[in-house]
């Protein structure tokens, strides 16, 4: 089965997001006022596995071993069959 996983990596709450803060400031120069801006990274991973459970387990392993840094990140996995 072919699956597509969309992995979103975010900083844990309470951590500084300098990029988000900079964008917030730039928007203020344009007249847009926001309460907060957080950035995240999204990875789109196509893979082949026998079942969606196996695919989810694999992608979760990838996140833990490389894609996320558990010290500073939370991540979510959105998996679907393609």
């Amino acid at each position: 089965m072919q699956y597509r996983a969309e992995v979103t990596i975010e900083r844990k709450s309470g951590m500084l997001d300098p990029e988000g803060t900079t964008i917030k400031r730039a928007l203020e120069h344009l007249g847009y006022h926001t309460n907060d801006i957080k950035t995240s990274k999204r990875y789109i991973i196509d893979l082949e596995e026998e079942s969606s459970e196996l695919a989810e387990t694999k992608v979760d392993e990838m996140c833990q071993k490389l894609i996320a840094n558990p010290m500073i990140h939370n991540y979510t996995i959105d998996l679907r069959e393609v």
């Binding site: 500084l16 900079t22 840094n69 500073i72």
Partner: peptide, 8 residues
Amino acid sequence: ALTTNEYP
């Protein structure tokens, strides 16, 4: 961990 400088 080493993350982006406070002023990036």
